[in-house]
Each structure stands twice: as structure tokens, then as C-alpha cells.
Design a protein around this nucleic acid. Structure first.
Lengths: 158, 158
DNA sequence: GCAATTACCCAGTAATTTGCTCGGATAAAA
DNA sequence: TTTTATCCGAGCAAATTACTGGGTAATTGC
């Protein structure tokens, strides 16, 4: 598993899509402005995402991108693997000195850990994140309302 | 959170230390050979690990490195953060267009996820990995023994 | 004392990755 | 047919990764 800024860009872009793509496609120009990523770089990322079926492009005016599947069918691992090219685990390829247990042990331990991280991120979907975000948002709103009421600012909070 | 090959190198090197450092310090030359990392690069990594107290160096012949703490007191997150310089979350620093909910929402969602990965890796210690490795090793040995017995190769397995 | 061995330190640099600019081509809506 | 958008690819600056090679400082065994 690998987690770079590239992966972060891809995830935030996909989140943008999940949030704003409910009524019509979202243009890369919009995402570019929202997330502060250059249009060309987004194009690169979305080429990878598209090839993996994670997004669907619609050309022409009024066009843009849709999610390729339902947001609860797209895991964070899917997204990161799509753009990070997933250069396979370090299974001691080529290094023949890894036959005898001791030496290769650390590698297999790392592989196990890597696998765990992968599974962890495979269990989190775009939908989960959005939902969690809404929940937080609601909590915050509630807190603000409660605070406003305690302070007697408005009688009943907006 | 960030997870690069640099972090992988650091983790496998620390695993090497945890496995082989029980009777005396381990030299970087050994780790270099075991893990296939250049000596100088290891020095760089260990300078960072040392500055965070994760390893302790001993100079002179017969010297090398010890773990700085007990292996169950060193988390994977500790190691990765030590070498990856932990360039802070993208909390929309500088970008003032992130005031209004919608735009900054994706960023805070990413931050949440990043935080979750961090916590996940903070809960896994070197000791955990080593132990799990031994367990796997034992399972494999058991399986081999059982297989040998079933096949009647040795009567009782070694 | 002296030589060997190790950590420690730092400057330079090749290779790779990241993220961007630019210049286009194709598809669809207006 | 013009405009809007995805698509496509070459090229490039900056950052990061990983290494080479120069040393110095501490410790050991002789």
C-alpha cells in the first residue's frame, strides 16, 4: 500500500464528485478550483480513475464526470490503487538471498502489515466518508445551536 | 499520514533490529545487506530515528544499533512519522477560499481519514508484528508437520 | 600507543516521482 | 458552427528518493 499526495488528490477529487455530482456531472474545472489542483493534473488522475471504471466522463457542454459506481461501492483503496499504479509488494523479487527464513522474514512481515492497511482502506467507502462528514456537520450545528441558546442569543437557534 | 517506500525501508529496518537485536547491537552494514538498502541511506534514516529516540547507537567495534525503547512501545506510526517528516495535514493553509463549508468539506473529510489511518498504525507495534510473524511461522511449521504425518513421511514431524 | 571497526556527519548527484504548461484532437450541446 | 467539455501526449520544473564518496569521533583489541 502506498499513500502519497497523489492519492490524496484523487480521494479529495472523488469526494468532490460524490458531494456535488448528485444533480448532474461535475467538471474538472470546478474540481480544479475547489481543490486547488491544476486542470492537467486532474486530467491525468481522471484518466487513471476512468480506466478503472471509478468515474464516467460526459463530453460537451454541460458535461463533466459522474462516479462510475454508487459511492458505497467505491472504496478508498480502489481510488488510491487506481492512481498509484500499485507497484506490487516487495516480495523479494530477484533477490535470491531471501530463501532462508531470517532474511525474508522482515519482508513478509511488511507484506502482512501492508495487507492490513489495504484491507482497512478497502472497508472505507466514499459513502462512509460523506455520511460521517454530514454527521459531524450536524453535530457541529447542534452544538452551535445549544451554545446560542445557553448564551440567550436568539431564544431558539437557527 | 503518508506511506512511502522510505517509510517501508524504515519499518523493515526496525523490524530487523527487533528480530536480531536481542543479543547485542546490529550494525547498519548487516541491515544494509539483509534489506538491500544502501548503507548511506540507512544512515540517513537512522539519523532521523535516533533523533526521535527510536534507536540508540553504539560506536566502535562490536557496536551498532539497539531499539531505543521496548518493541511494544514503538508503533509503526512512530517510525513512519520519524522518517517522513510529517508535513502536517492540508488544513487549507493559506487558501482563504475555504471558509464556506462546501469547499473545505472535502479537506476536512480527508483529514479525518488521515487521522484514522494514523490511529490504526499507532495501535500496531513492532512487538505485535514480530509476535504475529512467529505465530504464522508456528502455524506453517504445524501445517508442514501435519502434512508430513499424513503423507507418512517421517512418522513424527521434525 | 595504534589500527580496526563502527557510528556519525555532510556535500553532491543520479534517478524517479510529482505536478504543471502547452498544444492539440474529439464529442456533444447551443 | 461555435462553444464547452472530455480526452490525449510531449515536455519540463520542482521535489523526493536513494545512492556515492568524502570525512570525523568514539570504542575495542592488540
Amino acid at each position: 500500500m502506498r499513500l502519497s499526495t497523489k492519492g490524496r488528490y484523487a480521494v479529495t477529487a472523488m469526494l468532490d464528485l460524490a458531494l456535488n455530482g448528485t444533480d448532474g456531472p461535475v467538471t474538472l474545472a470546478d474540481i480544479s478550483e475547489n481543490q486547488g489542483i491544476s486542470l492537467s493534473y486532474l486530467e491525468q488522475l481522471f484518466a487513471a480513475l476512468r480506466s478503472k471504471g471509478l468515474v464516467r466522463g460526459v463530453r460537451g457542454p454541460g458535461g463533466g464526470y459522474y462516479l462510475g459506481r454508487e459511492s458505497d461501492e467505491i472504496s478508498i483503496a480502489d481510488i488510491i490503487c487506481a492512481v498509484d499504479e500499485w507497484v506490487e509488494f516487495t516480495r523479494c523479487k530477484g533477490r535470491q538471498n531471501c530463501q532462508d527464513g531470517q532474511r525474508c522474514l522482515t519482508h513478509s512481515l511488511w507484506d502482512d502489515l501492508s495487507q492490513q492497511i489495504f484491507i482497512f482502506l478497502s472497508d472505507i467507502t466514499l459513502h462512509d466518508l460523506v455520511e460521517r462528514g454530514e454527521q459531524r456537520e450536524a453535530e457541529r450545528k447542534e452544538k452551535r445551536a445549544a451554545a446560542a441558546q445557553i448564551l440567550g442569543l436568539k431564544g431558539r437557534a437557527a
